[in-house]
Amino acid sequence: MAAIYSLYIINKSGGLIFYKDYGLQGRMDTNDSLRLASLWHSMHAISQQLSPIPGCAGIELLEADTFDLHCFQSLTGTKFFVVSEPGTQNMENLLKHIYELYTDYVLKNPFYEMEMPIRCELFDINLAQAIQKDRVSYLGR
């Protein structure tokens, strides 16, 4: 029973900088996760071009047959997206919280190089807590 299947963070040029799997299927192949991330980056951009109304900021929610994909783009172009069970609520708040953790524990880390893969222990710890908390509140309802 997992409310959240996986989390991806991609930088402004479409490169995968963080990927974590919470589902039961195990980790996806590294090459595949990189490809998926850059594919999502371009689909996000194309969806803005096809908008019938000006001011489109790209896909926020993709509803597939077996999962929902919630995407949040920060002002600098970094995209955060979670793959969750269909119909999971409150993902926008979780994504904003993850963004907060990213600014606190990744961007403020003096050893972190911009646009490079994230390897920060504090970020991992706090992220695991946030996901755990969210999962508990989801199952508790």
Partner: peptide, 29 residues
């Protein structure tokens, strides 16, 4: 698709009804 382990390679064309598809997406506009 998180519900199946048997997934082909990314980008291989699929027949209608094959594989996990989507039914809608939403942007702000």
């Amino acid at each position: 698709d998180p519900s199946s382990t048997e997934k082909g390679n990314l980008g291989v064309p699929q027949l209608p009804g094959q594989g996990c598809s989507f039914h809608s997406f939403r942007t702000n506009t």
